[in-house]
Simulated assay, not measured.
Amino acid sequence: MRVVIEADGGSRGNPGPAGYGAVVRDAATGEVLLERYGALGTTTNNVAEYSGLIAGLRAAAELNAARVEVRMDSKLVVEQMSGRWQIKNPGLRPLAAEAAGLVGKFTEVTYGWIPREKNRAADQLANRAMDEAAGRVSRDAVEVITEPAVPEAPAPRSWAPPSLENATRIILVRHGATAMTAQGRYSGRGDVPLTDEGEAQAMAAGGRVAGISREVHAVLTSPLRRCVRTAELIAAEQGGVPVTVMDDLIECDFGLWEAKTFAEVQQDWSAEMTAWLESTSVAPPQGESFQKVAERVRGALAAVLSAYPGKTVVLVSHVSPIKLLLRDALAAGDAFLHRLYLDAAGISTMDVWPDGNIAVRSVNETAHLR
């Protein structure tokens, strides 16, 4: 049997009264097979999220499932259980170890991140557990399993100004303008250079980056010329920080739409365009879907966080990779991708902590271009 686990957890205050929820579905039909939820007393979001995963794995084991697909909106749990992020918080290690022990009961377990809006069922169960613990609702036929909270180091409350201690600062820069930018054409894998305007924009971006951080430890770039040149000009403002090409920061492959305008694509590929706008799993003809782009840029970000913990890093890339990184950081839905505009040489900044918490500090700064 193959099942899908949707798991979540939360706390009202961090730490605060917490609960978890898990839904186990038949992978083929989507039918709900089992639900689990419970209160945890006072603890943190991360503990609650791990508790949701553990409850889901236990339920899947009860069903004698062989293959399990775990879906969560907690990037921290997904990345740590996938082995891409270290578990530095001592309070989470026992939970991760328990989850790993349960994983051994199955033939295969995979993990995938989903936006919160697609994890609604598990989120509602977690909130129900918290409501019941507070005496706000009565229990029904859904089975409730209540477990003691596992202690974890205190985390800052959500409305308090975050400390920068141990955070990795990621400065996202879109490349300067090209001839394709000015014409409003799809510019994916075509290796076009910066225009004179683009060079000036890149130099201005370098000045703004210097204002954000006096010490940049690395400038990483897409392999395409428009990004490499932008990166070189930014690095020059930092006294010659080395520029390193990172292939996974490359733009989406737009396939047959490359160098076409939106109007041209809509005229010649109307049905394909509609499907592409409606789903990130759809690729342009002979091109690459946003889901595929998201997979590789998540991997790129994980590699950066592993290589430069607590440092400041500039990533020079393109519209699609930057939008997808910001979508994930803000836990936004896919509609975000079509509502956010990124200017040439626009700058966005976010801080990422070792436990997976993220603070987005700016999106598409352009004052340096005026």
Rank of each mutant, 00 (worst) to 15 (best):
G333T: 00
L315Q: 00
E152S: 11
V319W: 05
G56Q: 03
V142D: 11
D140K: 10
M203L: 15
E199Y: 12
V313R: 03
V352M: 11
P148V: 07
E143R: 14
G188F: 04
I114V: 15
E288V: 00
K311M: 05
S348A: 10
D248H: 04
P285F: 00
A141Y: 08
G188I: 09
A329K: 00
V78W: 09
A231G: 04
E31I: 02
H338G: 11
L326M: 01
T280I: 12
A97G: 07
G207I: 11
V219R: 15
N166Y: 15
A59N: 00
A218L: 05
N14I: 09
D355E: 15
G13F: 11
A121E: 08
K292G: 06
A182V: 07
R128W: 05
K75Q: 08
L194N: 13
D328S: 11
A307D: 13
R93N: 07
G176V: 01
R226I: 09
I358A: 01
A205G: 00
L256Q: 14
S74I: 02
H368I: 09
A235Q: 13
A271M: 08
G206F: 01
G299P: 14
D334C: 01
G30Y: 09
V4E: 07
T181M: 06
V24E: 00
V313D: 05
M130F: 01
R298H: 04
S213A: 13
A300N: 03
T146E: 14
D196C: 13
E232R: 09
E69Q: 13
N166C: 10
V304G: 06
V150E: 13
M273Y: 15
F106S: 01
A66D: 12
S82V: 04
H368C: 08
F262L: 11
L95E: 13
T29N: 00
F254K: 05
T146P: 04
S317P: 01
A275H: 01
G255W: 01
A153D: 14
R136G: 07
F336A: 11
I114R: 13
Q80R: 03
G190R: 12
G19L: 07
V109C: 00
T110V: 02
V243W: 00
A96L: 06
L92K: 14
I171P: 08
P156F: 12
D351Q: 04
G91V: 14
A300L: 07
W269V: 07
R296G: 10
R139C: 14
K323L: 01
Y37S: 10
A99K: 05
T195E: 02
Y20R: 01
A204Q: 02
G310M: 09
R229S: 12
Q201D: 08
D248P: 05
V314L: 00
M246N: 00
R226S: 10
V314G: 02
T349G: 12
N45K: 03
A200M: 03
V68S: 00
G188D: 06
I145D: 14
A59F: 03
A96H: 08
A218G: 11
G112I: 10
R208S: 04
N357P: 10
R67C: 03
R116D: 05
E199Q: 11
R339V: 09
L164F: 08
